[in-house]
Design a protein around this nucleic acid. Sequence first.
RNA 1: GGAGAGGUGCCAGAGUGGCUGAAUGGCCCGGUUUCGAAAACCGGUUAGUGCGCAAGUGCUACGGGGGUUCGAAUCCCCCCCUCUCCGCCA
Length: 428
Amino acid sequence: MLDIKVLRERPEAAKAGAVKKHMPDRVEAVDKALALDAELREMTPKLDAMRSEQKAGGKQIGKMSPEEREAFLQKQKQLKAQLQGLEEQERQLRSQLLEQLSLVPNIPDDEVPAGKDDAENEEVRRVGEVREFAFEPRPHYEIGEAQGWLDFSRAAEMSGSRNYILFGDLALLHDAVLRYAVELLVDRGFTPVDPPVLVRDAAMFGTGFFPGGEEQTYRCEKDGLNLIGTSEVPVTSLHSGEILGEKDLPKKYVARSACFRREAGTYGKDTRGLYRVHQFQKVEQVIVDVADKATSLDHHHSIVQNAEDMLQAFGLPYRVVNVCGGDLGAPQAMKYDIETWMPSRQSYGETHSASRFYDYQARRLNLRYRPEKGKPIFCHTLNNTVAASPRILIPLIENHQNADGTVTLPEALRRFFGGREVIGKPVF
RNA sequence: GGAGAGGUGCCAGAGUGGCUGAAUGGCCCGGUUUCGAAAACCGGUUAGUGCGCAAGUGCUACGGGGGUUCGAAUCCCCCCCUCUCCGCCA
């Protein structure tokens, strides 16, 4: 959520932000919020004065003679009736204001490129050589099924489309990657977290997924709980409502959790293989930071670097893109995606997503810290994927496949396999 | 799932209709004292928001939301959370 002061001072910037994000329906929320705000600001002093009068009157009443009191009570009752009406109005205005204000997207930074969708994301850098195969490389699902590592048909039978079952060495690889990711971040001073995967609406709202992301979310209506699509939700919400000490910041967390996404509206998109699935495991890095833009930028780059270091350790070619306005979510101010080379797609596919929010989430979460001197202020928040699996298994299998269908493990992962260098049997 | 207890400021903990934005103690900050320190003593110390150059001052908030009342931390209703006992269970 933006500070209402930002809307008052720079309404055009807020509207331009919504336009840049290709959210035309949210542009009007700016004007609506401002109108409600103006109405509230006009009525508040009047209300305050009335309440003040009523309170003062109430205090005198005990000292009055019975006759005086009778007349006075009549007056107070009138005042009260007026007040009740106005207070009801005030309540409505406040909740409407909150509703509109929470629809206003975060303002994208100037460095965010213009564009409609991911096709217009801007490449920042490319790292690693794309391998030239001496044979025709196979897609991961062909290798996986031939090896007995992957079963989509039984998964579909049990759980519907976009589900999968991992077996054997691929199940081990899945776990190895996640463990590697956690260990890497713990080494770098991040606190490991195993968070809830079921959360209340408040956490979804606070991190900016609601309103807007309801269709993407599995919901347990009976309990009013939502299955998280990323542990960003519970981990960023961890200190919601708190006032942290400045010396406790930044808080750096690395969480591993299951993630669930309905993938509504993606019928026919990425239907084969492990790319787009309803359930996956993800290791996520989250930083709760001081409210300083330079620090935010700095930490943003460092969490991108963490992910890059892992990809390099896995010997995977990738590129970093600066996500364009239209591909940015409402809460983000700027986002880098990392896309890893996937031979079966003949392209780089998104494997990581690193966002910075400034205080947009913190404001919704009421997440503050007390600076050395002065009033509490809203924190900045940041997050990035470290590893999302099984998606990351696609480049791992496909880039490191051999002609006979076996897969050579990158050095960094061999320790999880008792030193083995290759997984799978010759199947082709 | 059943029964009960409770949620007050940074922390502990009073407060059961007006004099309480909130006793008392602790933490922290400033000062007095001291060669210095500790102790002691004095003072300050919740957040949000409006007005004001400022000093200051109005309003709101005692888990959240409604209600009763001239007046609510205190009474009523709904929700959330914590704890105890019983039952069930990974």
